[in-house]
Computed example of a mutant assay.
Amino acid sequence: MTVEGGCHCGAVRYVLAVDAAPAIYCCHCLNCQSWAGSAFTQSALLPDGAISVTGPVIEYRFINPSGHESHQRLCGTCHTRIFNTNSARPGLVVLRAGTLDESDRLSPRLHMWVRRKQPWVVIAEDIPTFEETPPIAEFVATMLR
Results as ranks from 00 to 15, higher is better:
residue 143 M to V: 00
residue 76 G to R: 12
residue 39 A to K: 13
residue 129 T to S: 14
residue 143 M to Q: 02
residue 124 A to C: 03
residue 79 H to Q: 09
residue 100 L to H: 01
residue 17 A to F: 05
residue 27 C to S: 10
residue 2 T to V: 11
residue 140 V to C: 04
residue 101 D to S: 10
residue 47 P to L: 02
residue 114 V to K: 10
residue 125 E to T: 00
residue 14 Y to W: 04
residue 85 T to P: 02
residue 70 S to I: 11
residue 84 N to Y: 13
residue 3 V to N: 09
residue 36 A to V: 03
residue 59 E to T: 13
residue 112 M to S: 08
residue 106 L to F: 07
residue 79 H to S: 10
residue 37 G to W: 01
residue 76 G to Y: 09
residue 145 R to H: 11
residue 30 L to N: 14
residue 9 C to G: 08
residue 126 D to H: 15
residue 72 Q to C: 02
residue 108 P to S: 05
residue 48 D to K: 05
residue 22 P to H: 12
residue 131 E to W: 00
residue 41 T to G: 03
residue 105 R to L: 11
residue 63 I to D: 06
residue 105 R to C: 08
residue 127 I to Q: 14
residue 58 I to P: 01
residue 76 G to L: 08
residue 135 P to L: 05
residue 55 G to S: 09
residue 43 S to N: 15
residue 82 I to F: 03
residue 50 A to R: 13
residue 1 M to H: 13
residue 38 S to F: 05
residue 57 V to A: 11
residue 73 R to F: 15
residue 140 V to I: 15
residue 118 Q to W: 01
residue 11 A to P: 11
residue 93 V to E: 12
residue 137 A to E: 14
residue 132 E to H: 13
residue 59 E to K: 11
residue 120 W to D: 01
residue 30 L to S: 14
residue 128 P to C: 05
residue 119 P to N: 08
residue 47 P to A: 05
residue 86 N to S: 10
residue 93 V to F: 03
residue 63 I to L: 00
residue 38 S to R: 04
residue 77 T to F: 02
residue 109 R to N: 01
residue 93 V to P: 12
residue 72 Q to S: 07
residue 6 G to L: 09
residue 88 A to P: 11
residue 100 L to T: 06
residue 36 A to W: 06
residue 139 F to H: 05
residue 29 C to T: 07
residue 142 T to G: 03
residue 138 E to F: 00
residue 54 T to G: 03
residue 21 A to E: 15
residue 1 M to T: 11
residue 29 C to A: 05
residue 9 C to E: 07
residue 89 R to G: 02
residue 35 W to G: 06
residue 136 I to L: 14
residue 83 F to A: 03
residue 29 C to K: 08
residue 23 A to H: 06
residue 77 T to G: 05
residue 83 F to Y: 15
residue 19 D to P: 01
residue 76 G to Q: 10
residue 28 H to P: 06
residue 115 R to V: 07
residue 52 S to L: 07
residue 92 L to G: 04
residue 104 D to I: 00
residue 92 L to T: 01
residue 85 T to Q: 13
residue 87 S to E: 10
residue 36 A to K: 14
residue 84 N to H: 12
residue 2 T to K: 13
residue 31 N to R: 13
residue 71 H to K: 12
residue 11 A to Y: 06
residue 45 L to F: 12
residue 137 A to L: 08
residue 1 M to Q: 11
residue 90 P to I: 00
residue 99 T to P: 05
residue 17 A to N: 14
residue 87 S to K: 09
residue 77 T to H: 12
residue 73 R to D: 01
residue 3 V to A: 09
residue 85 T to F: 01
residue 42 Q to M: 14
residue 122 V to H: 15
residue 16 L to A: 07
